[in-house]
């Protein structure tokens, strides 16, 4: 499979404020994402993960180095709308990304901007709303919806553009557990059924554990990049940069430290249950 996102030696600093040196946020990032991949980016506040995300659809452009998405250099201003159509972005606060006071019109917003003709727009809006299970709410006002429903509307607004890649910047951070589950299941289905590449920025370890690949960032650098199992089995290193591992991984780790014979690459509840059952048998 071909690479959809190619990031080469990316450095980025925000413009310096008066009387201070520009602080470098991203310090040389090399990363490639294959088409159809489901990747999580982990890192605590200030690790540069949101800044990295904003480079993928050209909201920010590199100070040095290059970012290429589906063959388009993000620094190429002439192709910026083409780029944003292919790489959609969903933000943390659903309230601050919904433009219209009617659900279906908000989903149509991007298509209206792209000048899609009416019949096709109607069809794509309805499809997108059905994809996120919000079709019944198409004439509601966003203020009548729950957080998880609003976030699904925001996702529908992106998938209506038919992007190849969706970047989600902590989409579940403001949601209750029910909303988190709904949003995660929609994201997973988009990846599975339509082969859309997903870059999920999160600080929930259990969400990262559901992805195919986990990238851990710290102080503007990528420090770990592997499968969730391989990343979370390095409990000490993950904890050293101020992150947690999934609860079940931590339990297995503590049991092992206490002298029990248990595997150290457990990331799901089911694996944990089976491993503990084995200890007692």
């Amino acid at each position: 499979m071909s690479n959809i996102i190619e990031i080469k030696n990316l450095h980025f600093s925000y413009p310096a404020e008066e009387g201070s040196e520009p602080a470098e946020v991203l310090k040389g990032i090399d990363l490639t994402v294959k088409e159809g991949e489901f990747m999580a980016i982990l890192g605590h506040n200030g690790s540069g993960k949101s800044t990295l995300a904003k480079h993928i659809n050209g909201i920010l452009v590199p100070t040095s180095g290059t970012v290429t998405v589906d063959g388009i250099n993000t620094a190429d201003e002439d192709k910026i709308f083409d780029l944003r159509r292919r790489a959609g972005m969903v933000f943390q606060n659903p309230d601050n990304q919904i433009v219209s006071s009617i659900v279906e019109e908000d989903v149509a917003f991007a298509l209206e901007n792209l000048g899609v003709p009416y019949e096709e727009m109607r069809r794509r809006v309805d499809e997108a709303l059905k994809d996120v299970n919000m079709y019944d709410y198409r004439l509601h006002s966003p203020s009548q919806l729950s957080g998880g429903q609003k976030q699904r509307v925001a996702i529908a607004g992106i998938i209506a553009m038919k992007p190849k890649c969706i970047i989600l910047d902590e989409p579940t951070a403001m949601l209750d557990p029910q909303g988190r589950r709904e949003v995660m299941s929609v994201i997973k289905r988009m990846n599975r059924e339509y082969g859309i590449t997903i870059v999920l920025i999160t600080h929930y370890m259990d969400e990262a554990a559901q992805c195919g690949r986990v990238v851990v960032m710290d102080k503007g650098r990528v420090i770990l990049d592997d499968t969730p199992r391989a990343v979370f089995s390095q409990v000490e290193q993950v904890k050293k940069i101020g992150l947690d591992v999934p609860q079940v991984t931590e339990l297995a780790y503590e049991l092992k430290k206490a002298g029990y014979d248990i595997s150290d690459d457990i990331i799901t509840e089911e694996e944990c249950i089976n491993a503990i059952k084995k200890l007692f048998s």
Binding site: G88, V99, F109, N113, Y118
Partner: peptide, 27 residues
Amino acid sequence: FRRADELATAMECRCYRGGEGRTRLRQ
């Protein structure tokens, strides 16, 4: 103001570029 800033970014991400060449869902 913070909301306005975030909304502007979200609108840019959805290819907003003014009224030129826009089509409408509401007919």
